[in-house]
Measured scan of single mutants.
Amino acid sequence: YETDHQDYCEVCQQGGEIILCDTCPRAYHLVCLDPELDRAPEGKWSCPHCEKE
């Protein structure tokens, strides 16, 4: 299903190369994640907010 994702990072509120959560509309820079990621994850990815739930 399609979600309207943010076009900015949930953490720093800036645009650029962001990865999109497959569960919610949030988006993140790899370096803004904690722990940060070296590269975009393959397959489905859930953001830290969704992982907690």
Rank of each mutant, 00 (worst) to 15 (best):
Y1V: 14
Y1A: 10
Y1K: 15
Y1F: 02
Y1P: 03
Y1N: 05
Y1T: 14
Y1G: 15
E2R: 09
E2W: 12
E2H: 14
E2V: 06
E2T: 15
T3A: 07
T3F: 15
T3S: 12
T3W: 14
T3N: 09
T3L: 15
T3Q: 10
T3R: 14
D4A: 14
D4P: 06
D4N: 03
D4T: 13
D4Y: 08
D4H: 08
D4L: 13
H5E: 08
H5S: 15
H5V: 14
H5F: 07
H5P: 10
H5Y: 09
H5L: 14
H5C: 15
H5K: 15
Q6F: 02
Q6V: 04
Q6P: 04
Q6D: 05
D7H: 11
D7S: 08
D7Y: 02
D7L: 01
D7P: 14
D7G: 10
D7E: 05
D7A: 12
D7K: 10
Y8T: 09
Y8V: 13
Y8L: 15
Y8H: 15
Y8K: 14
Y8P: 15
Y8G: 14
Y8N: 13
C9T: 01
C9A: 00
C9D: 01
E10R: 12
E10C: 12
E10H: 13
E10G: 08
V11M: 15
V11G: 15
V11S: 15
V11F: 14
V11R: 13
V11N: 14
V11P: 12
V11K: 15
V11L: 14
C12K: 01
C12V: 01
C12A: 01
C12L: 00
C12W: 01
C12P: 01
Q13W: 04
Q13V: 10
Q13I: 06
Q14W: 03
Q14R: 12
Q14L: 08
Q14D: 07
G15A: 15
G15E: 06
G15R: 11
G15V: 02
G15T: 13
G15S: 06
G15D: 06
G16T: 15
G16K: 15
G16H: 10
G16D: 10
G16C: 05
G16S: 13
E17I: 04
E17W: 02
E17L: 05
E17Q: 08
E17F: 07
E17N: 13
E17T: 12
E17R: 08
I18S: 05
I18A: 12
I18W: 08
I18V: 05
I18P: 07
I18M: 14
I19A: 14
I19G: 07
I19T: 12
I19N: 14
I19P: 02
I19Q: 13
L20E: 12
L20D: 12
L20V: 10
L20I: 13
L20Y: 13
L20P: 15
C21P: 00
C21H: 01
C21M: 00
C21L: 01
C21Q: 01
C21E: 00
C21S: 02
D22C: 06
D22N: 12
D22L: 07
D22Y: 08
D22I: 11
D22R: 13
D22T: 06
T23K: 01
T23D: 04
T23W: 02
T23P: 02
T23C: 06
T23F: 11
T23Y: 12
C24M: 00
C24P: 00
C24W: 00
C24G: 00
C24H: 00
C24S: 02
C24V: 00
C24Q: 00
C24D: 01
C24N: 01
P25N: 06
P25Q: 03
P25C: 12
P25G: 06
P25M: 06
P25D: 03
P25E: 13
P25I: 05
R26P: 02
R26H: 07
R26Q: 15
R26A: 06
R26V: 04
R26D: 07
R26N: 07
A27E: 01
A27L: 07
A27T: 02
Y28P: 01
Y28C: 07
Y28K: 02
Y28N: 04
Y28R: 05
Y28I: 12
Y28H: 14
Y28D: 02
Y28T: 06
Y28S: 05
H29E: 00
H29Y: 00
H29T: 01
H29S: 00
L30W: 13
L30R: 11
L30F: 11
L30D: 05
L30K: 09
V31K: 08
V31P: 03
V31G: 09
V31C: 05
V31A: 14
V31L: 07
V31E: 06
V31T: 05
C32S: 01
C32W: 02
C32Q: 01
C32A: 00
L33M: 08
L33G: 13
L33W: 11
L33E: 04
L33H: 08
L33N: 04
L33Y: 08
D34G: 08
D34H: 03
D34T: 05
D34K: 10
D34P: 09
P35R: 08
P35D: 12
P35A: 12
P35N: 07
P35E: 05
P35C: 09
P35Y: 12
P35L: 09
P35S: 10
E36N: 14
E36K: 09
E36H: 08
E36F: 10
E36M: 11
E36W: 03
L37K: 09
L37P: 08
L37R: 09
L37W: 05
L37Y: 13
L37N: 07
L37M: 11
L37E: 01
D38F: 10
D38L: 06
D38A: 11
D38I: 04
R39V: 05
R39T: 11
R39W: 06
R39H: 05
R39M: 11
R39I: 14
A40C: 04
A40D: 12
A40E: 14
A40G: 03
A40N: 07
A40F: 03
A40V: 10
P41L: 12
P41M: 06
P41T: 10
P41C: 04
P41R: 09
P41V: 12
E42Y: 06
E42M: 06
E42H: 14
E42W: 03
E42G: 12
G43T: 08
G43I: 04
G43R: 08
G43D: 11
K44C: 10
K44L: 11
W45F: 14
W45M: 05
W45Y: 14
W45H: 09
S46N: 03
S46E: 09
S46T: 10
S46C: 04
S46H: 02
C47N: 00
C47H: 00
C47S: 01
C47W: 00
C47K: 00
C47I: 00
P48I: 03
P48H: 02
P48M: 10
P48F: 02
P48A: 12
P48S: 06
P48E: 10
H49F: 06
H49A: 07
H49Y: 04
H49M: 01
H49N: 15
H49K: 08
H49T: 11
H49P: 04
H49S: 11
C50V: 02
C50I: 02
C50G: 03
C50N: 02
C50R: 02
C50W: 02
C50A: 03
C50T: 03
C50L: 03
E51H: 03
E51N: 08
E51T: 08
E51I: 03
E51L: 11
K52P: 13
K52T: 12
K52V: 04
K52G: 08
K52L: 04
E53M: 07
E53W: 03
E53H: 03
E53P: 02
E53C: 02
